[in-house]
């Protein structure tokens, strides 16, 4: 049973590492081409008026969440943040695709080369990972709390 918990802990760490790679990678790509990222946002429906703010805000938020995922104490908050960010991205993509299927992707790096369906699949996969991470982190925290109260 203990071995099972250790493995779960490792899986949560692995999920956090995957998210760190994803967020640091996409944030770096966006920041390297901030002007182009802003140009793309300006062509997106609904959010075009806020392109200036979003072009700085999203990479900043991604880096903050990656930072939270680094530390064991903040990992659960980081996983919640990742899940919310992914939900927002995916919800926005799906909403926009109701009107057009030729929207320029404003995502960073090679992710922008993905088609919209692939993009949604990637996001859903990451959301499932975040959910698993949250569930297992919570269980682990509960076990640790129980052990402390017993001692």
């Amino acid at each position: 049973m203990k071995l099972f918990h250790i493995h779960k802990n490792n899986v949560v760490v692995a999920i956090a590492i995957l998210y760190i790679i994803l967020f640091v990678y996409t944030a770096s790509s966006k920041l390297m081409h901030l002007g182009v990222f802003r140009l793309r946002l300006e062509r997106m429906p609904y959010i075009a008026p806020y392109a200036q703010w979003i072009s700085w805000g999203i990479p900043f938020l991604e880096l903050v969440i990656a930072g939270l995922l680094l530390f064991h104490g903040y990992r659960l908050i980081g996983l919640y943040g990742s899940l919310v960010l992914m939900l927002l991205f995916t919800g926005y993509i799906i909403a926009v695709l109701q009107f057009s299927n030729s929207i320029p992707c404003s995502c960073g790096g090679v992710v922008s080369a993905l088609g919209w369906k692939d993009h949604i699949l990637l996001n859903i996969s990451f959301m499932i990972l975040a959910l698993l991470g949250i569930l297992w982190s919570k269980k682990q925290n509960n076990i640790q709390a129980t052990q402390k109260s017993v001692q």
Partner: peptide
Amino acid sequence: LKLVLPAFAILLAVGLAFATEDKTILQI
């Protein structure tokens, strides 16, 4: 798990961002 792996992940991500940097194509 606490230090080396996350540091490696960050380095990998930043390295990847530079490695996959391509000439950006503006579509419209």
